[in-house]
Structures are given as structure tokens and as C-alpha cells.
Amino acid sequence: MHRELITFEVADQLFGIDIMAIREIRAWSPTARLPRVPNYVAGVVNLRGTVLPVVDLAARLGWEPTEATPRHAIIVTQYAGQARGLIVDSVSDIVTIAADTLQPPPAMSQDGVVPFLEGLSAIEDRMVMVLNLQALNADAEELAHAA
């Protein structure tokens, strides 16, 4: 069985998300900040009349927050009935991987990126970290207030 992923970069690292979880890819637009939300929530944007919470993926993964510019993109994901935007540096490609080539993430650490990974896959000469949307959306109640 094969899986299709959208690949993108955050902090010079290559990530992927299952294409079936992607609603759309938007050009960067400034977010409206909200009070009392986690530091990785960049704010909200208007998505055709719907309030869309936007997460700074770099900050969510424990890295330095993104200084967003018009060159950044927002990937709109749909998981468990909730839409959420993810700020990424750039969108790369659509790739197909064999499901059996997805390796489990290393159990070296439960900090940073590892808890948010579904697995790793080698594509050409680069390693793609496949994100686990369930883990990324574990704070759904906190962000429900933003929407």
C-alpha cells in the first residue's frame, strides 16, 4: 500500500503530512493574535468566513518561533472535524511512499519533535519526518476557544 504526502520545510527540516488531511495550501496572511492561548498559536485568520486557528509549527515543535514573511505558507489541515492552519517555511512537493518504508521515530527523547512524529521515511537523499496530526492536535480544547 502507498501513501501520498505533502512535503514542506520548517527550520530547514523536511516534513510530510498525509495528503488526505490537507484541505488547502494558502499564501501567508497576517494573523490576529488572541489572548491567553499557548505561545505556539500564532492567532486566527479568516478562511472564507470561518475563523481558522493558525499554529506556528516551528514553535509547536519546540524551536524558535517563526518570523513570518510573505514567503511563508499556511497549510490548512482537517483532523477530527477541526480545521487548523500550520505556518511552514515553504511547501516542497507531493511524494508517494510505500507504507512499509515508514520507520518508527527514534525513542531517544520525548522532547521536541519526536512526540509529534508518526515516522520517518527516506525520499531520495533526504529524510522526511511524517507528522502525526493526532499528537499535534492534542490541545484541541485550548484551540477550540480560538475558533
Rank of each mutant, 00 (worst) to 15 (best):
M1S: 15
M1R: 12
H2Q: 14
T7P: 01
V10N: 06
A11R: 13
D12R: 07
L14C: 01
G16Y: 05
D18V: 06
I19N: 01
I19M: 04
I22E: 09
R23T: 05
E24P: 00
I25F: 01
I25C: 15
A27Y: 14
W28G: 13
P30K: 13
T31A: 07
T31S: 11
A32T: 15
P35R: 10
P35A: 10
R36P: 10
R36N: 13
V37K: 14
V37Q: 14
V37W: 11
P38I: 13
P38V: 09
N39G: 13
N39M: 05
Y40E: 11
A42D: 02
N46R: 09
N46K: 08
L47T: 03
L47D: 12
L47I: 03
L47E: 09
L47W: 13
G49S: 05
T50R: 14
V51T: 10
V51E: 00
L52D: 05
L52R: 03
L57G: 03
A58T: 00
A58R: 07
L61C: 03
G62R: 00
G62A: 05
W63C: 00
W63T: 00
T66H: 05
E67P: 02
T69G: 04
R71G: 09
H72K: 08
I74F: 04
I74G: 00
I75K: 01
I75S: 00
A80Y: 04
A80T: 03
A80Q: 13
G81D: 11
Q82P: 01
R84H: 07
I87P: 15
D89R: 10
D89M: 08
D89K: 09
D89F: 08
S90K: 06
S90L: 06
V91N: 08
V91S: 06
S92M: 05
D93N: 13
D93H: 08
T96P: 01
A98G: 12
A98R: 11
A99D: 15
A99T: 14
A99V: 13
A99E: 14
D100Y: 03
L102F: 05
Q103V: 15
P105T: 15
P106W: 06
A107E: 14
A107T: 12
M108Q: 11
M108L: 14
S109G: 07
Q110E: 13
D111Y: 02
D111S: 08
G112L: 08
G112N: 05
V113L: 13
V114W: 11
P115Q: 06
P115R: 05
F116H: 14
F116I: 03
L117C: 02
G119D: 01
G119F: 09
G119Y: 07
L120M: 11
A122K: 10
I123W: 12
D125S: 12
R126S: 15
M127L: 12
M127H: 00
M129R: 11
V130M: 01
L133H: 04
L133D: 02
A135H: 02
L136D: 02
L136G: 04
N137A: 06
A138D: 06
D139T: 08
A140V: 12
E142W: 09
L143Q: 05
A144T: 09
H145I: 12
A146S: 13
A146W: 05
A147D: 09
A147F: 00
